[in-house]
Amino acid sequence: MNCQDVRLLLHAYLDDELGAADGVAVTRHLAGCEACMQRVRAYTRTRDDLRGADLYRHAPAALRTRIAARLPRPAVVQRTPRRAWNLALAALAALCVIAALFAGWQTLQLRRAAGHALVVDAVSDHVRSLLPGHLIDVRSTSEHTVKPWFDGRLDFSPQVKDLTAQGFELIGGRLDVLDGRQVAALVYKRHLHTINLFQWPGSGAGASVSRTRDGYHVLEWSDAGLRFIAVSSVAKVDLQAFERAFRAVPSAASEAAH
């Protein structure tokens, strides 16, 4: 390898992008060629200078604001008038939902319909989870990330299952409160719909019970010492398909144990 070859290759050499054979050849040439070695030193120094010269240009805040205003959601910035406005709208919507739920809750109290309070709670949790920033504490599409995250945060081991193949994408999980106790909430996506799956230790009817509340479908079942409530705006048949898929797929834990 001569100096002309090395002049081209030494950049890939410095960038750690050279194949092993070429790397060895360049190293060998440099050991015996002071001129090329000096080039290596010079380019290394320029590279370090470039990286150290604070030449990186960060996006101005005004640009972030402008882009945020033109995207469907004010996603980019922390605080802008539009974001504040949307938050206000969201708060208003939440108030309406809470008011509606409260009215519903009173009706329920009158009916003294057993079990319904849980459904109301679950729907309320679901609605709250859809407010900005409430959906997910651990964001991952991998059951092997989501499940360990719950360890130490709950007094039980929740079932976490990847249902991507069945059309329900796991996007994360969070802690939530249902009926006065801490529960695991898994978040799945069905197209643009969110499915919240709450679970906690307990026993109930093994077979599933389906309800509709405020336009949301609620599905309850129990399995292997855990109670489950799934809440979503997807079609009822989709939620039932979700339950079937969830029951059929082995959870991360049992998979790991095998």
Binding site: Y56, R57, A59, P60, L63, I67, L71, R73, A75
Partner: peptide, 14 residues
Amino acid sequence: FEREVVRHLDAAYN
């Protein structure tokens, strides 16, 4: 989109 793309706004601007 925000999670996947907009977080690279600095790189885009640079």
